[in-house]
Design a protein around this nucleic acid. Sequence first.
DNA 1: TATTGTTATACTCTATAACTATA
DNA 2: TATAGTTATAGAGTATAACAATA
Lengths: 156, 156
Amino acid sequence: MKVMTQASPATQPRLEQGDDDLGIVDALAQLTFLIQGTLAKHATAQDLSMAQTRLLGVLRDREPTMQELARLLDLDKSSVTGLVDRAERRGFVRRAPSADDRRSIRVHLTSAGRKVIERVGAGFRVDVATATQCLSVVERKRLSTLATRVVMAVAA
Amino acid sequence: MKVMTQASPATQPRLEQGDDDLGIVDALAQLTFLIQGTLAKHATAQDLSMAQTRLLGVLRDREPTMQELARLLDLDKSSVTGLVDRAERRGFVRRAPSADDRRSIRVHLTSAGRKVIERVGAGFRVDVATATQCLSVVERKRLSTLATRVVMAVAA
DNA sequence: TATTGTTATACTCTATAACTATA
DNA sequence: TATAGTTATAGAGTATAACAATA
């Protein structure tokens, strides 16, 4: 089994804020590495690369064409061909002809693929929940709401 | 120039919490993809892979041996050889003989390397600050403190 | 002609195993 | 013998360019 991608920051903390606060940039940067590391750990535990994990994750509630998949993953269509090839070879996804356009195909999860990505998701959820156990219920709710607002604002 | 790694979640939101709150797991997951995408964008803008970015980031305040570098980056030593080879070829790092142990070498940034990683860091800082502009000063401070506490708790 | 997907090719990144030099 | 680093090799992941089939 491969080793997990590490959670070391590419951006070091500047400590203008005192020991109890890294500043918004470094706090979020470090939190990010922490959480990505957690996800990578569970992916690795299921013998999945991050690329495969992202592919299977995206397919949980979609049956996109290769073109759409390329857009969703922000990859070149030729990269998606290889990614799907390898996932199909492992039995996690299938290609199926598209109904309307005979040029295009649709990619969907197999039950094995769904099973493996669900396991990654479940482990990830447990670990993130555990990591935030140091906060009270109210604080956790606050963090959740604030993070949501940032995500929403950027998406908008 | 390469295209940035995308910020699409491998974990989809479950909406038990209403539209204003994704729940702690999904909120943090999505925030993570957002921030990683930002870092990847600025790395790409400097024509750096994430692996090279991580290498240069780690070297900002260290001159480690190859062995130490492998531990810091959580890579096999043979992977580090290649990573440093390519960085050295581009003039970003240099190998220097280690004083005490003639088996080992120390890796350090060149001024070109420092310049390029500082540019990535600067752009990243601006974008993260911008992304949190939707929050008030008090809210930003709160987010920063909460994130810091989670990071510290996990590190401990 | 334009679009969808694949193939050919090249490079980065990563690991394992075998090797060299030093301790 | 054990450790530090490199080399050889193999495979995943990615992009660009050229191609075939369909629209």
